[in-house]
């Protein structure tokens, strides 16, 4: 990861932004923070405002209703700006990728952010429907550099 992310490696404060998910991922995030999995031992904490956040957690395909508020929240977060796309819907739009009231996945959101001139420094994807708390822990370890990334990313995009 780029060196500018070094500064946040101690404890990651996260702002949870539900962009229209079904709750399953949201509940698993809380689950990862409570005693059984205890992600707080890695210094992860949910914060009440994007202005205090190191990373923004996006769950769900971004719905048209939530879109303006999502953009405002991301704009309000300080640099370096990390997005974490959670679950099938967050990563790709999932089953809703082409329905009438969503924009479909984080890729479309990134395009809109680019049009607005909002820069994103890094983006992580956590797959699963819903994600397991173990996957959330793994992602935290990956961001903090405790574990090595084990899959190679290949970008397949028709455009």
């Amino acid at each position: 990861m780029p060196s500018k992310l070094e500064s946040i490696k101690k404890s990651i404060w996260v702002f949870h932004l539900n962009t229209g998910s079904c709750n399953a991922c949201d509940i698993e995030i809380l689950d990862a923070l409570t005693p059984f999995h205890d992600a707080e031992r890695f210094g992860v904490k949910l914060v009440g405002t994007p202005r205090h956040a190191d990373a923004i957690l996006l769950t769900g395909p971004t719905t048209l209703e939530a879109l303006p508020k999502v953009i405002n929240a991301i704009e309000a977060s300080p640099r370096p700006r990390i997005l974490i796309a959670l679950g099938s819907c967050g990563s790709s739009g999932g089953i809703w990728h082409d329905t009438y009231s969503t924009i479909g996945g984080v890729n479309s959101l990134l395009k809109i952010l680019k049009e607005r001139g909002v820069d994103v420094d890094a983006i992580y994807y956590i797959p699963g429907c819903p994600v397991r708390p173990e996957a959330v822990l793994y992602a935290i370890a990956l961001i903090k550099g405790i574990v090595e990334k084990r899959v190679k990313s290949v970008v397949l995009n028709a455009e």
């Binding site: 229209g20 769900g60 089953i95």
Partner: peptide, 11 residues
């Protein structure tokens, strides 16, 4: 509310 309208019925 209705921030989470995803168009399930139509789908």
């Amino acid at each position: 509310g209705f921030h989470v309208h995803r168009g399930i019925e139509k789908l």
